[in-house]
Every structure is written in structure tokens, then in C-alpha cells.
Design a protein around this nucleic acid. Structure first.
Length: 308
DNA sequence: AAGTGTCAAGCATTA
DNA sequence: TAATGCTTGACACTT
């Protein structure tokens, strides 16, 4: 049984009329942050965490037990301490309520912080921001009372090579040590979608072998950066890095194929699905990264049923 | 309410 | 040199 999940946005709930809209993605531009500061952040965060609880309830009632939380939950999180938000107590209340709900109903929650997180950089300012941002994600899971393991993964890409993969990997592994313990124990790395970047095989030998963090295998990315491995080989290799924790993979399909439009980059994610990932009989959770979110998940369930 | 232009961060790639 | 895309469209202003 491979559990299916979706990422960050519930399409149906977020397109309700404004008064009923449910979203965890309330944010603001830089100017507004400068003008209104953390009190306004705090208001938005409170609404976001309340809506997170609603989404988890929606998921449960639709038998979806795997969900990626948006990093937008706390806008500008690297610019303040969570404890300094005026509504922090109420925010904690709703996060704990969501965490309790998650555990009671055996859901799995994960994060996927943005591409601006460059743990492999050698610029101290970039490292500083990256460490703050990654630690914030771990702190949220801590508040929710979720496991300090990759079961609640915080997944990132290595994200650069600087024209020198060995030294870039070294920087990544060195800077990893600066993260909080609760972040280090949850961190995972994902294979890239460009030939020049990091394949599953390279992540294994350059990152996993050094610091032992699990590899998230992305089916879609793999075809653009195989590292010389077949899907089955790369998948097996990635799964072997998860120890006792049930692994996660990512699955999406090509938008250019979906719309039969060669002008669209083949890497772009599709709206929905028309075929299923080959699991080779192995068991792991699958994060679906299509644009139509929970609708795509329901489509995928149909497709998987038809196969059996 | 609906439409439009703009929007933090880092990097590699394309135009 | 500038625009694009990435884990995810949303904000802010005008009409």
C-alpha cells in the first residue's frame, strides 16, 4: 500500500469565495512587511494555522493522510523569532491542535522549503539565512509534537554546483552541522531535474555517505538527470537510505506532454495524471506534485484502481 | 468584484 | 543583460 499525498494547497478549499476561503498561504510583499512588521505577520499566521487545521480535517474526511505543509505558513519566518509574534500563544494552540489531530488520525506531514535555501553555499550570509529558514520549519514540527525523524521530513535540494561538485557537497555536509538537532534529524535531499545538477547516485555518494540523511527520489526529475541509473536502480538506492522510516518519493508528469505543447518545458508539472508510478512492488509514500492538487490525487487513485 | 502588474531570498539556464 | 523556473501563486493597487 503506497499512501498518496498532495502539496501545500487544497484546490477546492482555496477557491471558495473570499469569506470562506481556506488557505495557509497568506503572505505579503517586502514593502508591507517593512510597513506593518510582525504584528501583521502574526495576524496572517494565526489565520494560516487555523486553516491548516481545517485542511487536515478535510483530508481526514477524504481519507488522505499525507500532506505537505506550505512554507508560507509563517511569512518572512527568517526575519524574526516565532516567539516574538504577538499571537504566539494562540498560534501554538492551533499548531498543537493540528499536531494532535495529525497523530490521532495517523497522518504524515512534511515540508519542502524553497530553492533559496542553499546549504551548499560558502557565503556566510546565505548560510545564515538558510539555517534560520530550515530551523524554523523544524520548530513548527516541534511545536506540533511531531517526530524528529524524516517521517516528518524537511526536504531540500542541494541546489547548486558552483562548477565544482566535490567541494559543493563538502560545503553542504559541513554547513549541515550548523542546523538545530531537530532540523538535522528531519532533513532529506532530493534529486534534481537538470543533467548538470545532482542525480540520485551523486546524492548517495556525496551526501548520504557523509552525513546519512535520506534521499527523496523524484520520478519526474530522474528522467532529466539519471546519473546513469534506471528508474528501478535509482529508486532502490534512494529507498535504501531511509532506515526504519517509511520512505517518500515524489511523482509528477510532464506538462508539455499533457498539453502536447513542445513550447512548455518538459520539466514543468502537469495539472493532473494519466499514468501511475511504477513502485516495483516496493512500499513507500508518494507525494503528488501536480497543479490540481487533491483533484489529481483522486485521479491517481482511480488510475491505480484500474490497474489492479 | 475583477483585472493587472509586481513580487525576498540563489542558482543555472535560456533568450 | 535580463528573464525564467524552482517547493507553492499571492499581493497590492486600480477600475
Amino acid at each position: 500500500m503506497n499512501n498518496l499525498g498532495y502539496a501545500c494547497i487544497n484546490h477546492g478549499l482555496s477557491s471558495l469565495p473570499k469569506s470562506k476561503r481556506v488557505t495557509t498561504n497568506r503572505s505579503m510583499i517586502k514593502r508591507t512587511f517593512a510597513e506593518k512588521g510582525t504584528p501583521y505577520v502574526s495576524e496572517l499566521v494565526l489565520q494560516n494555522v487555523k486553516d491548516l487545521y481545517k485542511i487536515l480535517n478535510w483530508n481526514e474526511s477524504h481519507n488522505i493522510k499525507f500532506f505537505r505543509i506550505s512554507s508560507d505558513l509563517f511569512p518572512w519566518a527568517s526575519e524574526y523569532q516565532l516567539e516574538d509574534l504577538p499571537n504566539f500563544k494562540d498560534i501554538v494552540y492551533w499548531l498543537q491542535k493540528s499536531g494532535d489531530y495529525t497523530k490521532t488520525h495517523s497522518h504524515r506531514l512534511t515540508f519542502h522549503p524553497g530553492p533559496y535555501n542553499k546549504l551548499c553555499s560558502s557565503d556566510p550570509r546565505i548560510i545564515n539565512n538558510t539555517v534560520k529558514d530550515l530551523n524554523y520549519h523544524a520548530q513548527v514540527f516541534d511545536i506540533m509534537g511531531l517526530s524528529s525523524t524524516p517521517y516528518n521530513k524537511i526536504n531540500i535540494h542541494v541546489g547548486a554546483t558552483y562548477g565544482d561538485k566535490p567541494s559543493t557537497a563538502q560545503s553542504f555536509c559541513r554547513n549541515f552541522k550548523q542546523l538545530s538537532t531537530s532540523c538535522k534529524t528531519r532533513l532529506t535531499v532530493e534529486n534534481d531535474d537538470k543533467a548538470s545538477m545532482w542525480s540520485t547516485r551523486e546524492l548517495y555518494s556525496s551526501i548520504y555517505d557523509q552525513i546519512g540523511i535520506p534521499i527523496v527520489f523524484d520520478y519526474h526529475h530522474h528522467q532529466f538527470c539519471t546519473g546513469g541509473l534506471s528508474v528501478e536502480e535509482a529508486l532502490s538506492l534512494a529507498l535504501s537510505t531511509w532506515g526504519d522510516t517509511r520512505p517518500v518519493t515524489h511523482y509528477s508528469q510532464s506538462r508539455s506532454e499533457e498539453y502536447k505543447d513542445p513550447r512548455i518545458k518538459p520539466q514543468a508539472h502537469s495539472d493532473s495524471y494519466w499514468s501511475t508510478p511504477n513502485t516495483y512492488g516496493m512500499t513507500f509514500d508518494i507525494m503528488l506534485e501536480c497543479k490540481h492538487k487533491e483533484l489529481g490525487l483522486q485521479k491517481m487513485r482511480q488510475l491505480m484502481k484500474e490497474i489492479k
